[in-house]
Write a protein that binds this DNA or RNA. Structure first.
Length: 478
DNA sequence: GCATGATCATGC
DNA sequence: GCATGATCATGC
């Protein structure tokens, strides 16, 4: 290893050498050598491994040591996607760290893994992801190293403990990324064939790896790119606050709790703000309670990728409105399988539900609670997703127009014909359904397959909804 | 009063 | 001009 163009014993040398790779690609620099590596199709996705071998001329290892074991640096490559609107970069997906060995896990401490061990100091090489372009030909866009700052350690440790305790209790098969904030337990490996034994249970569990969740990875990216700016609003100013109250969730709840039982308008008065009665009223009120400007993002929520939902509850404890998500792209569902689907990612996230309850015609803040979807319900969502996909594949979304008693097509207030569809309905599942979600019904997304009845290649935007009854019974009343 | 389709208002 | 979080509107 004496002829290396960097000093493999020194982190700083490795990092600065890595930065020289920015703007290039494996294909552009080592095109002819790629073939000599005899990469299997599986390896072709492992850009990090190839970079290590061709660029660093360093033999990769997959044992429990870090990749650059003398220097204690773990090399990770990951994709960046460029946002269309803002042109900013975001993580294409979570960053997968070491495999969670369910049996040996119980011998390793958090510190051995994330403070001193393999995952403690990362050398991150981000390539620019573009659809249809092989990783090896992708441009290296951003390079930097990452050590967990002290204020993140309590949250990471708490995450690790949640994973640890679930495995210890024989519940490895029920692990979910929504269990945790920054550090996730993501599935790794393809369909079937990857079931592992776990301690204290005879049920086999999917293979999973520790991962840095997309929100947290975006935070890292922003730091490395020096783009961290005032658009983030911190809830937790000092790490000590966190250690004292034990968990991030408790900190957030303890900030909302003082407003329990108080009318929305009184909360405005207390906070010395005036909000308009728009559909954004309750989300805005919540941000104000958390001490964040309305137009700011909340740093911890971004890092942990927490989904906030403001819900109105009626006097008889019913919830009238189902809970919407962003509109999906028909083409994307058509192309994806469940494991890599957007919806699976979404429902594995952690949610913060804040309930505003009606009393004599006015709403007061009733309670706030963190939640993530139980294992069995996630399977039910999968079923609904598959049914949705089937309609898209078959070109059978459109069912019929809505007619009045005289047999004339009904039109909406805005003058658009009302169309009924075959997508999964409220009654088809006790967890979720599909309904329109756009500015109005003329806002469409392209269809991958022509709609058989409508003879068009587009349809009104739709999204998945949590059933209102599900939210009431499984979250509000629990 | 529920189920379903449609749309509002804001912010980027 | 559209994405989004949320809520409205109408028929049955």
């Amino acid at each position: 290893m004496n002829n290396l163009p960097y000093n493999h014993l020194e982190k700083s040398s490795i990092i600065s050498f890595a930065k020289e790779f920015i703007g290039k690609s494996i294909q552009s620099e080592f095109g002819e050598e790629i073939d000599s590596l005899n990469l299997s199709n599986k390896d072709k996705g492992q850009l990090g491994k190839v970079i290590e071998e061709l660029y660093f001329k360093y033999k990769p290892n997959s044992d429990s040591n870090a990749d650059f074991k003398e220097a204690g640096l773990e090399l990770k490559s990951s994709g960046l996607k460029k946002l269309k609107k803002s042109k900013e970069y975001r993580a294409k997906e979570r960053l997968v760290l070491s495999i969670i060995n369910y049996v040996e896990l119980l011998d390793l401490t958090f510190e051995e893994l994330f403070v001193d061990g393999k995952n403690s100091h990362l050398l991150l090489i981000f390539y620019l992801y573009e659809k249809g372009i092989n990783q090896l030909a992708s441009e290296i866009k951003l390079v930097g190293d990452w050590k967990y700052p002290p204020e993140d350690i309590p949250i990471l440790k708490n995450d690790w403990e949640i994973i640890f305790n679930k495995v210890k209790s024989g519940l490895a098969h029920e692990l979910s990324e929504g269990d945790t904030l920054y550090l996730g337990a993501c599935t790794k490996g393809g369909k079937g064939g990857n079931a592992r034994h776990q301690p204290n249970s005879t049920i086999k569990a999917k293979q999973r790896a520790y991962s840095l969740k997309p929100g947290y990875l975006n935070h890292i990216i922003a730091n490395i790119a020096q783009e961290e700016s005032a658009v983030y609003g911190k809830i937790i100013k000092r790490p000590e606050t966190l250690e004292k109250i034990q968990s991030f969730e408790n900190v957030v709840i303890s900030m909302i709790e003082p407003y329990y039982g108080i009318l929305d308008t009184e909360i405005e008065t207390k906070l010395k703000i005036e909000l308009k009665r728009s559909y954004q009223y309750y989300p805005s009120l919540l941000k104000a309670i958390l001490g964040v400007n309305i137009n700011q993002k909340i740093e911890e929520f971004e890092k942990a990728d927490i989904q906030i939902k403001a819900i109105r509850v009626e006097e008889n404890n019913s919830i009238e409105q189902s809970v919407s998500f962003p509109a999906f792209k028909f083409e994307q569902i058509y192309e994806e399988n469940w494991r890599e689907s957007e919806l699976k990612d979404l429902i594995e996230k952690k949610f913060l539900f804040v309930f505003f309850k009606k009393n004599k015609g006015e709403y007061f803040l009733d309670k706030a609670q963190f939640w993530n979807m139980p294992f069995n319900d996630r399977n039910e969502v999968r079923r609904v997703w598959l049914n949705t996909k089937k309609q898209i594949q078959n070109g059978t979304i459109f069912k019929d127009y809505a007619y009045d008693k005289k047999g004339v097509i009904r039109y909406s207030k805005k003058g658009n014909p009302i169309r009924k569809n075959n997508l999964p309905k409220l009654k088809d599942s006790n967890v979720c359904h599909v309904r329109p979600h756009g500015t109005d019904s003329t806002y469409t997304y392209p269809l991958p397959v022509e709609d058989k009845k409508l003879k068009t290649m587009e349809y009104s935007k739709q999204c998945f909804w949590f059933n209102a009854i599900y939210v009431r019974d499984e979250i509000y009343l629990k």
